[in-house]
Structure formats: C-alpha cells, structure tokens
C-alpha cells in the first residue's frame, strides 16, 4: 500500500554520494550535520506527532568531527570511507561524554568515560556521530514502546510502532534525520525494526563486530550492526566497524574483506535454502509470506539455485532463545 505521507528524504541518498560531494566541495560535513540537527529539531517541535528517534544529541562532538572532515576536503586530502556521514547510535552503546541511558531511568545522568569500539571505529572512518537513539529499556522489547523516555513512532505512519528494540535507529534513518545508524540485535532487534521502517538492517555474523562498550543483554546472542538506506551503505558501515578487538574476547580474528566491493558480483548459481518449517509456520502472516516469496522468485529469476530444506529443530528456537536470553540477562544485568 502506498504511503500518502512518506517521510522526508535526506539531501544525500547514500554515504558514497555524500562523500563525493564533500570531496568536490559541493557541500560540507558541517552543513550536512547542521541539516540533520535542524531536521531533528523540527521533529521535536511536533510534540505528540513527533517521531522521537533521539534521546540525546552530541552536537559539539559532531561539529568538531565535521570540521576535521571539512579541513581534509579543503586541503584536497583523501577522505576516509565514511567521511561526513551523519550517523546515529543506539543508546545501549557507550559514548564518551554523551549521555547513555539504555532507555532506562536507572542510568539517567550517566556520562560514560569511554567509547564503544564500534563508535570509535565509525569516527575513525570519518563518520559524524549525531547522538543517541531511543530503544526498549536495555534493548528488551520489539516496539520501542518500552522506553522510560516515551515511545518512538514510525516515520511512515505515526500511529504505528517502528519495531524494536533498535526502533530509534531505524526511525532516524527512515525519517532522514541520519544517513545511517548503529543498532544491536539479540533476538531480531536490528532486523525487525529495519523491516518495519523500510530501511536496510544487517545482522553480522557472531564475533564479527566487537561488543566492547555495549550494555550486555545476552552475551551469546548480542550483535552490533548497521541500519542504512542502501545495502552499499550497510557494507561500508560493516567494513568500518568489523574486525578483531582485543577488548572483546569473543571478537573473531578473521580478516575483514571489502564488503562493498563484493556487492557487484552476480548471484547466478548461489545455492539458497528455503526452510520448509519456517514457511509452514502458523505464525507467518500471509502478507509477509507473499513478500518473501516475491523475493524468492526474484532470486530464482536471477539464476539462484533454490532448494527446499528442512530444519527439524526450527520450532525449538523460541524456547532456546527465552531460556538463554533470560538467564544471560539476569547474570549480566545483576552487576
């Protein structure tokens, strides 16, 4: 169904386009950051009709970083891969000197003395950190209604939820208030809000992205990953945050490939398994089934080798999740 009131698009459709524009001096990182802050302020002024994606803004830090990027461009120096990209960060990730609450009143007023590794790496790659996005309290929820600071609304329809728990990150990107965002996913918390808000959400392989500086929920399931407007931007963001981190003993030592370079490869001949049990599940909404099957058909038309497979333990996933997630959460958060 077409949306009668689509949210405003940002001035720059992708990180690559923005970087080129900054390099060619058609815009500045500072102007882009200011435009984002203006969009966020316009939204805040809408009161009960606001998207309410952000809990805190890191204006000073963002403008200092934007000035560094602009100075590089002015000198004609090569720009880092995320140069000037305005990025929002889910409020469960630690940001030095920027309020971090996990959506909870318990942490109101807390100013972390350090950055999460993913945040530090984004900045090192030239990204401009705009602020912190709303989420279900301690990332426990699927609608971003369970935040102590009030709900986030879906920019496509303010009467609907944006999904969760990374709902603020998904909504900020969908509303054009940030070009990309970091989210976290323990049981769907990047993928589901990305789907609800019509943006790209990527759950990286476990161990691919350091969790240092993430308020732990369930350590054997917690992941940090990107939410973006395009798959190419997701590849760029993942490339910047992925890789071994001595501060996270569970981070993988595998080298980081150039994800963006891999995107142009043809999909012909890729073998794709379609788990019978998932498609037969009574909880699968007909509209969702239709869209997934349209995607499957598109992959088939592109020459993928589609095969029905069986995952006989599929139905045990929810039970495993609720036993592990609750046990690990009570152990992690008791501290």
């Amino acid at each position: 169904m077409a949306n009668p009131n689509p949210p405003p698009a940002p001035a720059w459709e992708s990180i690559g386009a923005l970087r080129a524009a900054i390099a060619e001096r058609r815009t500045t990182a500072t102007a882009v950051a200011e435009a984002c802050f203006a969009a966020i302020a316009r939204d805040a002024a809408a009161g009960a009709r606001s998207v309410h994606a952000f809990l805190a803004l890191s204006r000073e830090r963002a403008l200092a970083q934007a000035a560094r990027v602009d100075a590089l461009a002015e000198r004609g120096d090569p720009l880092p891969p995320l140069a000037g990209a305005p990025v929002a960060v889910k409020d469960v990730l630690s940001t030095r000197g920027v309020a971090t609450t996990c959506g909870s009143k318990i942490l109101a007023g807390y100013l972390p003395p350090y950055d999460a590794t993913a945040v530090e790496r984004l900045e090192a790659a030239g990204a401009v950190i705009l602020g912190k996005t709303n989420c279900d309290e301690f990332a426990m929820g699927s609608s971003t209604e369970n935040s102590a600071y009030g709900p986030t609304r879906n920019p496509h329809d303010l009467e609907r939820v944006p999904g969760g728990s990374s709902g603020g990150s998904a909504a900020a990107v969908a509303a054009g208030q940030a070009l990309a965002a970091l989210g976290t996913d323990t049981g769907g918390s990047i993928r589901q809000p990305a789907a609800f808000c019509g943006v790209v959400g990527l759950l990286p392989t476990y161990g691919r992205v350091s969790r240092y500086g993430l308020a732990a929920f369930a350590s054997s399931l917690d992941h940090v990953g990107p939410l973006t407007r395009t798959p190419h931007d997701a590849a760029l963001l993942l490339g910047a945050i992925a890789g071994y981190d001595p501060l996270d003993a569970t981070s993988a030592t595998e080298p980081v490939p150039d994800y963006a370079a891999g995107l142009g490869r043809p999909v012909r001949g890729l073998r794709i398994g379609l788990p019978r049990e998932a498609f037969a599940h009574p909880g699968l909404a007909p509209a969702v089934r239709e869209r997934v099957q349209a995607g499957v058909a598109a992959l088939g038309a592109a020459g993928c080798d589609l095969r029905e497979i069986s995952l006989p333990l599929n139905d045990a996933a929810i039970a495993v999740y609720y036993v592990l997630a609750t046990a690990e959460a009570s152990s992690n958060l008791a501290r």
């Binding site: 476990y206 161990g207 054997s220 569970t250 993988a252 333990l313 045990a316 929810i318 039970a319 495993v320 609720y322 036993v323 609750t326």
Partner: peptide, 23 residues
C-alpha cells in the same frame, strides 16, 4: 520459561556435541 525448558528436555540430543561457544 519452565515450559520452554520442558520443550528442550524433550529433544533427543544423543550424539550431539555440546557447543560452548560459536567461535
């Protein structure tokens, strides 16, 4: 939650190697 544990107890895990960590 106890019911979930019960569901897991009914799964035959004979011969399945325990996985302590993914990496």
């Amino acid at each position: 939650i106890l019911d979930y544990v019960g569901q897991l107890n009914r799964i035959d895990t004979a011969g399945v190697e325990p996985m302590a960590q993914a990496i």
